[in-house]
């Protein structure tokens, strides 16, 4: 883990003990990144600001559960941010989903650490995206970065819903196969 990630992990640990200065530092280091992610999903500044508040409240409240969830610190923060933004975008799914996930992951057990500490890097991912059909790669990207549903994707690519599901599921298998090489 790079020293920067280590520092963020340490800040999360201090935050878990109620250290407000640590919270402020986490915010200074990560808020522009997370706000960018949220804005990308919501495309509405006022809503994005509102959701960013909820995200950092969640980060503060869940900090003590971070260590056992098996995710690297930035992935944990990005996942909380993205889930909150998508929950807001869809409204139908209440915000508790991210909390449920945290609960679910909070079981220490034999963890996924070995796999999770593996540095995910953008080049590896974009290399694997390059092995997919362009439209299939774009579908995965739209789902993750824009929060598109299967219905959104089917409409965008003008294919039947079931075709969309098949594309995407095959793409996921190919991606995982490539990423595991």
């Amino acid at each position: 883990m790079s020293s920067e990630l280590q520092e963020i992990e340490d800040l999360i640990a201090r935050m878990a003990m109620g250290n407000r200065q640590a919270f402020r530092e986490i915010y200074a280091r990560t808020s522009a990144k997370l706000f960018g992610v949220v804005l990308r999903v919501l495309e509405d500044r006022a809503e994005a600001e509102d959701v960013l508040q909820e995200i950092y409240i969640k980060v503060w409240n869940n900090a003590e559960r971070y260590r056992v969830n098996g995710l690297s610190p930035m992935t944990w923060l990005i996942t909380i941010a993205r889930n909150a933004a998508i929950d807001r975008k869809r409204r139908a799914r209440p915000v508790q989903s991210a909390e449920m996930l945290n609960e679910a992951l909070a079981d220490p057990g034999p963890g996924p650490e070995a796999e999770a500490v593996r540095r995910s890097d953008r080049e590896r991912l974009s290399g694997c995206f390059g092995e997919l059909d362009d439209r299939h790669a774009e579908a995965v990207r739209r789902a993750y970065l824009d929060g598109d549903t299967y219905a959104d994707l089917a409409a965008h690519f003008e294919v039947p819903l079931n075709t969309m599901r098949t594309w995407l599921r095959r793409s996921l298998l190919k991606l995982r196969e490539c990423l595991s090489r």
Binding site: A32, G36, Q53, S72, P112, E115, A116, R124, L125, R176
Partner: peptide, 28 residues
């Protein structure tokens, strides 16, 4: 959980293509 964590890590790398945007100072 390990399978999910691997996806979460790998997919999060996509956010590197998203430009950071500073939230307004009034938010903190």
């Amino acid at each position: 959980r390990a399978i999910y964590a691997a996806w979460a890590e790998d997919l999060a790398a996509m956010t590197e293509e998203v430009a950071p945007v500073a939230p307004p100072a009034s938010l903190l």
